[in-house]
Write a protein that binds this DNA or RNA. Sequence first.
DNA 1: GGGAGACTATTTCTAATAGGAATATGTCTA
DNA 2: TAGACATATTCCTATTAGAAATAGTCTCCC
Lengths: 229, 229
Amino acid sequence: MSRQVGDRGGRRLRSVTEKKVRGAQAGDDAERPTLPATSWAVLGLLSFGEELSGYDLKKWSDWSLRFFYWSPSFSQIYGELKRLEKVGYVSSRMVAQETGNRDKRVYVITDEGMAAVRRWAREAPVEPPVLKHGVMLRLWLGHLLEVEQMRDVLGRHREYAETMRQRAEADFAGARAEAAWAYPSLALKWSERYYASERDLADAMLADLDELVAADGADGVEGEAVKRP
Amino acid sequence: MSRQVGDRGGRRLRSVTEKKVRGAQAGDDAERPTLPATSWAVLGLLSFGEELSGYDLKKWSDWSLRFFYWSPSFSQIYGELKRLEKVGYVSSRMVAQETGNRDKRVYVITDEGMAAVRRWAREAPVEPPVLKHGVMLRLWLGHLLEVEQMRDVLGRHREYAETMRQRAEADFAGARAEAAWAYPSLALKWSERYYASERDLADAMLADLDELVAADGADGVEGEAVKRP
DNA sequence: GGGAGACTATTTCTAATAGGAATATGTCTA
DNA sequence: TAGACATATTCCTATTAGAAATAGTCTCCC
């Protein structure tokens, strides 16, 4: 998201020699590295202070962020961790695991990393959420479907939304107990409401669809779409 | 989204000579090309039957899909058009423009293209919408912000949602007149409700936040987050 | 006791997506 | 007549997505 490379000052026309803008060298402090969204998310996960491996991060983000944010791939997470370590926002060490399982590399956030996420969370511009709603795209292309099929698509989406709502509700119930999870709990509450709304919106769409069909007499609307491919 | 390259038959281990999987040659019919989401969106825009240039498509999609789907870049649109032409789903011709402006290449959907989008709209699996809600991510990381800053972020988001709602409302008012826009109108109505809900969710969050702060006595929550970076 | 399957852990590869910048060409206007 | 603006397209690069490959260790079951 948010592309803000070289926004400040006279960096507009960068020389051929400059090349890699990212990851300011240890030497030239003051110039802070500009990081993509995923970096901040990973650093955010680490900002709770735990020492985690890439694998841990993947699993944890799948669990915690899935309701309102992405599920990054392993490759992204491991890549981000390397980048973050290079700029000094995290540090790592290998740990040999006593109980079974092979050695792993675990990461902790550094003081600079903490300062950086904090700055990001406080000062980054508020950007619009990214939404790619395939179901709505298909509804928008309603002339390509028959009403029955559209109802089916909406119905399935409704089910998905309700399932997500229930999961968010369950997770919220589990998280509210812990005082340390106050904000994650808030986000889960938001998620529950969000998916409830998504479900209701699907119901409303189904009603609107019935109305549309009724209004112009027995599925006349997609008249020309009816001729089979 | 949905990765389904080489799902069928014995395509698993592809020979070195095969390379480009996409865009089945004219010769090997029956084997339908598998296209990414963006292709279907572009083909969907063309499924209304108009002859459009890449530039037209960009502008139109910015206008019509922005509420619930992406805004593709020019490079993506032009790229997709080339791919779609290669697989025979669209055809193009150059037109010299009488009134000013340079020549342009315009695209129309072919019969096979029409059959393909229709099949896609009817039969593609219903996939969950993609949501990347940066505001919620920051809220989830509430321990990094002070309450005032969080309120600010939520407030800005609320404004964004309300602005979008108004735009959707206005567009809906404009589109409902045209009978041909029945389904796009439905999608706009959904959009209006969606952004209204997003706005209300922001308000609810603000209320929850007040409650949280009140509950544990004058902003005690982010106690340790208060020490400045 | 040996293999199948499952879980932890990380790397590699490729495609899809995002979006700035560059390049034309033509209008309109100050 | 330069400069701003709109149309029209291409190019380049970084980010994001996700499958698959690789590897070590455990457990279960025949």
